[in-house]
Write a protein that binds this DNA or RNA. Sequence first.
RNA 1: GCGGUCGUCGUCCAGUCUGGUUAGGACAUCAGCCCUCCAAGCUGAUAACACGGGUUCAAAUCCCGUCGACCGCACCA
Length: 487
Amino acid sequence: MNYDELMRLALGRGFFVPSCEIYSDVPAGFWEYGPLGTIFRNRFINLWRKEIVRRDQMIEIDGSQIMAKEVFEASGHLKNFVDPIVSCSKCRLTVRADKLISDNINEIIPERLTDEEYDNYLRKNKISCPKCHSEFGKVSKFNMMFRVGVGAIDESAYLRPETCQSIFVDFPRLFKIMRGKLPFPVAQLGKSFRNEISPRQSLMRLREFYQAEIEVFYNLLRINEFEKFEEISNYVLRFLIDTRINEISCEEALKKNIIPNKLVGYYLAIIQQFYEKAGIDLNKLRFRKLTSKEKAFYARSAFDLEIETSLGWIELVACNDRGNYDLKRHMEVSKRDMTVIDGDDKVLPNIFELSMGVDRSLYCIMEHSFIKENDRNILKLNRYLSPVQVGIFPLLKKESLQVRAKEVQNILKGEFQIFYDESGSIGRRYRRQDEVGTPLGITIDYDTLNDNEVTLRNRDDMDQKRVKITELLQIIRGYFLDEDNFR
RNA sequence: GCGGUCGUCGUCCAGUCUGGUUAGGACAUCAGCCCUCCAAGCUGAUAACACGGGUUCAAAUCCCGUCGACCGCACCA
């Protein structure tokens, strides 16, 4: 399935839609989840909670989206998330002023200059537009963070550009009240905001987006004392090495130094296992080790989990070893002690993070799940993720059948997401549900009125079997609890 | 942010060049008829010129601007 087809499905069936779409002057980069998309996203988050958060006995928090200026002074965002930009007065070419200057004058320029200082550099060195050789206009700053004015005096604060800062600033209290021990993982699902210059491709680059993040606080001295590694030591990870994807067990990857330590290996494994369960085609998944140029300046090591789609390889999870940069900076700026006791050591914890882009993940899962069989469009979501779980259809629009169908609906609606549909032919109604991934359909016919049995239809193979209404609840419960058949 | 292409019912398309009747079709949707199970058929209905300004007796159509989409560049610690 390509991007256009997926967008048609998303817009036409209400998975996700552009924000404020009735107005024509609204900025790009904001999307909303419709009825099916909201349930789909919630189920995805629940799977994340089940397969990662609860599996690893993590705690989860929910932090503020607006955070104080000091937080971003400490994190480096105020300094590093700001690009000085300058435009050519004639051809409008827009470039980063600092790059332009250092490319032109073979001299390292100080990092944090005022706009006027950049202007001076440009004038002194007579730097002109590389394209049309005209003069540049004035330098201005573009910050990727959204500033907000708080209270009557309009005090500067920012919408967080990454959710993890909430976890970092909460760490001392969390560690105490949860009687924490290292390694100490903390999870959070929430929104982040980045003022992207050019948002593109719907959910792929948003200005307001969901992140599901795990921050693991650990003691660098004991990074290989990690018993849980045994759980996944034989699990095979997929690494991009040079230009080929290599399947390598965690154990072997550790020996060959592809992964730096057991802790990183464990978390890479559980995130890959999670995506496997979420319905991503493993043949289209890889970990890419970032080069020192690509890595964030604070990162000790970094892997991107990438998924192949019709738009190319897409980064879904940033797996960064952030070192102790974050806590060190927050300690410096806030003057609060962030160290903790670990055994006999008093340490400032290091942090390994799994930073997942939720919206992108949903897009990728949908793209990998959608198939066409003859004329039939099927969204083969795994049964945990399907927004609608059971479709209920009276075979014909006859009162006796409708009444019976409503009775069946009443039995199931407390426990399952039901969609009742009596309009159109039965085949058409099956197809409508296939397209949005509903795994089960129940049809009430004239025989039902006598024998109290209904037809239970399976989305994937279109198999039909007769089931007693009294056993329906039990059977459907079993179906959705089936751990081994997550497809 | 730059350059190119482009914005018409929910979707796909016609109409725009060459301004002029009630903006047309298909699919989808809704209602009715028919029908015991995989997009059948028949009848009817709903529904659109991205937004703002200009030219004109008259604008979906011509001009300007804004916003958006796609592609490329740049950006994406």
